[in-house]
């Protein structure tokens, strides 16, 4: 059994919290440039110009890209032949506490009834999977409230199939309009059940924007959805344009004979995420 020192986890998580909030991921940076070049509308071009300038400035000054530095969402693949000294969950929360304090990041976690801020952005939202091996892989996402509020879970009838799925996702993006900071990234969870569809939709957002799904049928469906979404013409910040979303990422899981669960997780344009292997 490999023992991973808690300090290694704390440091790695704190670093991801800080880095993801000040440095736009390389895949997003590249996608902004690619989409900006395709836009013809002056307002769309101007928004991309501002977002690229914002990214340059954040990197240089270490000011966060956005004031909503998010709830900390982590997906953890824990090797069955390793364990974290003092406990994995405690170490991750300590890392989040440290990252949000040392990075001058906003603490956004609060009680749902009293709305009282917990003060240190914990507890983080942590999903742990056990996997073979002795490595610890941690994916981190800073998830803002404005985009998360536009997310939905629904249950279609199996008869509705792919046309029903496509219709629901495109309508969701249309109804969200300018609210979630388009151009968004859309995570789609198809199958599973109420909680699994939502979890895989969120986890799908951890994939790089330039990643092509290994299943050619799913890859084609991602493209079909992205094209349909971009036909909406909502554009950057809702001001019109060809780029309403930067990417669509689908994840699939088997489901009950009676169900077709569907989750849509909406992510803002900056899609702040990082990963580390310990």
């Amino acid at each position: 059994m490999r023992i991973i020192p808690a300090a290694d986890v704390i440091e790695a998580v704190a670093t991801m919290c800080m880095e993801s909030n000040v440095e736009l991921p390389a895949d997003v940076w590249a996608k902004f440039r690619e989409c900006a070049a395709r836009e013809e509308s002056p307002s769309a071009k101007e928004i991309f110009r501002q977002l690229l300038e914002n990214a340059d400035l954040a990197k240089e000054t270490r000011l966060p890209l956005c004031q909503d530095t998010g709830l900390a969402v982590l997906f953890v693949d824990l090797g069955e032949d390793c364990r974290v000294e003092g406990g994995l969950r405690a170490a991750i929360n300590e890392g989040v506490r440290k990252g949000y304090k040392d990075g001058y990041l906003r603490k956004s976690a609060c009680d749902p009834f009293t709305r009282k801020n917990t003060g240190d952005n914990t507890p983080a939202i942590i999903h742990i999977d056990l996997v073979p091996g002795d490595k610890l892989k941690i994916f981190f996402m800073a998830k803002g409230g404005g985009s998360e509020n536009m997310s939905r879970v629904t249950f279609l009838s199996p008869a509705q199939g792919w046309p029903g799925i496509k219709d629901f996702v495109v309508r969701r993006v249309a109804e969200a309009g300018p609210n979630p900071c388009p151009p968004t990234v859309i995570g789609v969870g198809i199958g599973g059940n109420a909680e699994l569809s939502a979890i895989i939709a969120k986890k799908a957002l951890m994939r790089s924007l330039d990643d092509v799904h290994p299943d050619p049928d799913i890859a084609a469906k991602e493209k079909e959805l992205l094209d349909a979404i971009n036909e909406l013409g909502i554009g950057p910040m809702g001001l019109g344009g060809k780029t309403t979303s930067l990417g669509v990422k689908i994840a699939v899981a088997p489901c009950h004979l009676a169900s077709l669960p569907l989750a849509v997780n909406v992510q803002c344009h900056s899609s702040r995420h990082r990963e580390v292997i310990l």
Binding site: Q50, L51, L65, K107, N117, G119, C181, C268, S270
Partner: peptide, 25 residues
């Protein structure tokens, strides 16, 4: 512009809390 928090911050020259300090952000 949403998500341009670093850029917009450059136009803010001074800030002071005037009420509800307990609400933090």
């Amino acid at each position: 512009t949403g998500g341009a928090g670093a850029l917009l911050s450059q136009c803010i020259k001074a800030a002071r809390v005037i009420a509800y300090e307990d609400l933090g952000p």
